[in-house]
């Protein structure tokens, strides 16, 4: 299991790095919000879900999509705006979906998918489906009224929803302490009546363990669970670059979180045995090959046709 978690995180890291590296070529002509540094939350949560369970995301959703099993080539093609993209170029990086994998959609209006997750869980309940729905959102998104309205309804109806708050301390360039008073986010969720738990967001095993417990409780008909995971975004809010020069992060903060890298943390644990070290090295090579061929396949896609757009408007 540990190795599966590691491999999934490494794959997301390398995909995001590859996107960042190629972004400067100006062929991915849409905003991208990279998940580098935050991989453990996506991977730990999704590894504890079944394929039939559903996941929603927001503007920073590449990791959630990939961790849930979303098709890599289709995501890359979408970022390139090609016909083989997961939304045929209509959406770009900020709008991704893979229904076959149970990734039910991500859009960039913050908070927009939180009520949808509750609605999906409600439908699952009404249709007697054994399904858990997880929704990822940030600390900033927690400030939106719709999040609280949604949690209230979910608790009222005891719906099988897992609210995952990735607390990376910032909304764009504004620090949490400039937006919320000094009290825990999960404390508010507890007051709403959620089963509120926290897990170290850069420790994939901790996130996985917390989610497994949450999912078991949800499947047994327990109250909605709110999982808060402290983590950290390494790169700029939107775009491929580092942004420490902007001065909005206290000096040394980024370095401190980089040293708590979720990927290398697990790599060093795994590498302590010769067998593990071999697996880690092999994973790196396999993933590099997979990403290279995914880019090739993505870029081989045809251009989407504007004439098709009106066909998507109404069912």
């Amino acid at each position: 299991m540990m190795f599966t978690l590691y491999r999934s995180m490494l794959r997301i890291r390398r995909v995001e790095e590859a996107i960042a590296e190629r972004y400067g070529a100006q062929e991915m002509r849409c905003p991208v919000h990279l998940s580098i540094g935050q991989e453990a939350v996506a991977v730990g949560v999704c590894a504890a879900l079944e394929p039939r369970d559903g996941v929603f995301g927001g503007h920073r959703a590449h990791a959630h999509y990939l961790a849930k099993g979303g098709d890599l080539t289709a995501m890359l093609a979408e970022i390139y705006g090609l016909e083989n993209g997961c939304c045929r170029g209509v959406g770009g990086s900020m709008h991704i979906i893979d229904l076959a994998a149970g990734f039910l959609g991500a859009v960039p209006i913050v908070g927009a998918t939180v009520p949808l997750a509750v609605g999906a869980a409600w439908a699952a309940r009404l249709r007697n489906e054994d399904k858990v729905i997880a929704v990822f959102f940030g600390d900033g998104t927690f400030e939106e009224g719709v999040v609280h309205e949604s949690i209230n309804f979910a608790v009222l109806h005891k719906l099988p929803v897992l609210f995952v708050c990735e607390n990376n301390l910032y909304a764009c360039y504004t620090r949490l302490s400039d937006r919320q008073p000094d009290r825990p986010i999960h404390g508010i969720a507890a007051a709403h009546g959620c089963r509120a738990v926290t897990a170290e967001g850069n420790d994939v095993e901790a996130v996985y363990a917390a989610t497994r417990a949450a999912v078991a409780s949800l499947r047994a008909g327990g109250a909605p669970v709110f999982l808060e995971c402290p983590t950290y975004r390494w790169r700029e809010h939107c775009g491929p670059n580092l942004d420490d020069h902007l001065g909005y992060r206290p000096g040394g903060e980024l370095a401190e979180w980089e040293s708590a890298c979720p990927v290398s943390r697990l790599a060093s644990v795994l590498s302590s045995s010769p067998e593990g070290a071999g697996l880690v090295a092999a994973a790196e090579a396999e993933i590099a090959a997979e990403i290279a061929s995914a880019f090739t396949a993505a870029l081989a896609g045809p251009e989407p046709q504007p004439a098709d757009l009106s066909g998507y408007l109404y069912a």
Partner: peptide, 8 residues
């Protein structure tokens, strides 16, 4: 609605 891809 506004599509995303530059081709669109």
């Amino acid at each position: 609605p506004v599509p995303t891809s530059p081709h669109l």
